[in-house]
């Protein structure tokens, strides 16, 4: 556990507010312990900055155990840093060495405007979710849980998709700032389960329309998203969503219209 401390130089994006001009500022981080997390290293640097009477670096973080999806740094050109399958908060300083220059930037995408420094506004994801990322099940109206069996393989696959922490690294990593992996994860999680079938077509059409409307780019099947995903969500789900989308288009074009009308 005791390991020698070392020094690195941070080059951090500083931006006073939304739409303001930003620039990179260098800060030395001295006495870095390899067992520190990247965010803990930033905490220490921030205390030093504050002690000098300057404003600390604003960065998003909360649970610091890789599940809340709040942290969102691009470290040396990679969302969430050099390691595979972890969030920024689980990036440890042992991944760096003495004398490294580390460039820290916010997630960049037009639908994720910078709020301040490294903090971005990712409310676009909530808007996509609100468009259809749910199964309508009024509280109290649910049938007995075991009345609908779900094959283990299906439940596991749904869980693979459902693990998404909504951090936005997929968007940050994509050269098109596409949100396909995020949306595909949501669509697949609910679309795989029997409970999600009634709204399956409506869901995929609505979520994709909202995603497009918010200004996310399209998918060019390069799979940078799944490579950057801290939960390693597979781009297989994107293929699945494409298929679901095509089916839903087909269904919507040929479904006979129901007469409808209010009940008694």
């Amino acid at each position: 556990m005791t390991s020698k401390t070392f020094n690195v130089i941070l080059r951090v994006w500083r931006q006073a507010g939304p739409g303001r001009e930003g620039r990179f500022v260098e800060y030395p981080a001295r006495g870095v312990n390899p067992d520190m997390s990247f965010l803990e290293m930033l905490d220490v640097v921030n205390d030093e900055i504050a002690a000098r009477g300057e404003e600390p670096i604003a960065f998003s973080h909360d649970c610091r155990e890789g599940i809340c999806g709040t942290c969102s740094l691009v470290i040396n050109g990679k969302p969430h840093g050099p390691n595979h399958g972890v969030a920024s908060c689980q990036t440890y300083m042992r991944s760096f060495k003495d004398g490294d220059r580390i460039v820290v930037e916010p997630f960049r995408a037009r639908p994720f405007p910078v709020i301040k420094d490294l903090v971005t506004d990712r409310s676009a994801f909530d808007a996509i979710q609100q468009a259809g990322g749910f199964i309508t099940a009024r509280t109290g109206s649910a049938p007995e849980a075991n009345s609908v069996p779900v094959p283990k393989e299906v439940a596991e696959l749904a869980m693979d998709a459902a693990q998404c922490i909504g951090c936005g690294a997929c968007v940050a990593a994509c050269k098109n700032a596409s949100a396909m992996l995020f949306v595909a994860a949501k669509v697949s999680h609910l679309g795989l389960l029997p409970q999600g079938q009634p709204e399956r077509d409506r869901r995929v059409l609505a979520m994709v329309a909202t995603m497009d409307g918010l200004g996310f780019g399209g998918c060019t099947n390069q799979y940078e998203c799944s490579a950057a995903c801290p939960k390693l969500i597979s781009h297989d789900f994107i293929a699945r969503m494409n298929r679901d989308y095509a089916k839903a288009l087909f269904h919507s074009a040929f479904r006979p219209a129901a007469a409808g009308g209010a009940g008694a």
């Binding site: 749910f134 199964i135 099940a137 509280t139 109290g140 109206s141 649910a142 049938p143 007995e144 849980a145 609908v148 069996p149 779900v150 094959p151 283990k152 439940a155 596991e156 749904a158 869980m159 459902a162 999680h189 609910l190 389960l193 409970q195 999600g196």
Partner: peptide
């Protein structure tokens, strides 16, 4: 019951 209806992928 409620969570399963919402699509919570519990272990099976």
């Amino acid at each position: 019951d409620q969570c399963v209806a919402q699509g919570v992928p519990f272990a099976r």
